[in-house]
Amino acid sequence: MSGLRRVFRAREWTLVLAVVAVVLAITVLGRGQQFASENNRTQLLRQIALLGTFAVGEAVVIIAGGIDLSVGSVIALGAMLSALAINRVAGAQPDAGLAGVLVALGAGALLGLLTGLFHSLLVTKLRLPPFIATLSTLAGLRSVSQLITNSAPVPVQIERFKWLADGTHAMYFFVAAAIAVGLLLGCTRAGRGLRAMGGNEDAARLSGLNTARLKTLAYGVCGVLAGIAGVLYASRSGQGDCRLGVGYELRAIAACVVGGCSLSGGTGSLSGVVLGVVLMETVLNGIGLVISRNATMWEGLVTGVVVVLAVTLNALRRER
């Protein structure tokens, strides 16, 4: 029982209850059958996986005391580069091999890694605030994603590429990302260092932690996962598209905050972020089912209310 408590502390149970309450509300409002339908389950799991893949990366940066505003633009550029890469390697052959898919994933991950390293350079060497450093790439990478094809989408007709985000396959990437981040944060010295640095950077440095290296790790992980998410989004829509990912950094940050991360750093758990993602996507899914007219107009309002409620509950819990 104590082991279970360690995994799911009180805050996470609150999130579990919130998810259950949302599902119950959807059912009570007469949309339970639709919610449980195969198509809707697939859609919901895919949306959770797509958001979750880059939200857990954002969580690493937030727990380390930083912020990464560039993930939406990394997703767009990652989608464009992966589509260009697989078309270059595999040509227009619909039955192209695994190598092309790996090259596409590699292109997205490499872009993310380089972006993360660039952020680390700006933050550690030039001592720019993370907000400014990542704001510059938020704008700059979006611009690059438009320039490389003059804003033209890059269609991909390769079946293996489509497989990546077909059905619930994106969940493999999300689960892998969550396990990797969970192990990093919970089972390694670096993970403890990230949390310590997020809580008090000066104290962490004075106690001998290499904070520059830890920041490189945090921004690198976040960048790689955002790049991979870009590949998944390209797979899903069947094309690299520079219109992808606008505002997604805010969705990731919101999921982290709902999951219990503090924007001042040092606080947060992987299980909380995963549940935050699940809660937010379940709420959005439920809105689409329950509200039969102008559903999309309600999404922002309801999401805002969920974020405020979650942060308020966290604050009240800390005061206790």
Binding site: N40, Q43, G245, G247, G288, S292, T296, M297
Partner: peptide
């Protein structure tokens, strides 16, 4: 029966299509 908005986000546009096929 409904007009779905997506703010020019392809992912949202596709998600809206899936929601419509379920909800309507």
């Amino acid at each position: 029966v409904e007009i779905y908005e997506d703010a020019v986000d392809p992912n949202k546009a596709q998600s809206n299509a899936e929601t419509a096929l379920t909800a309507h």
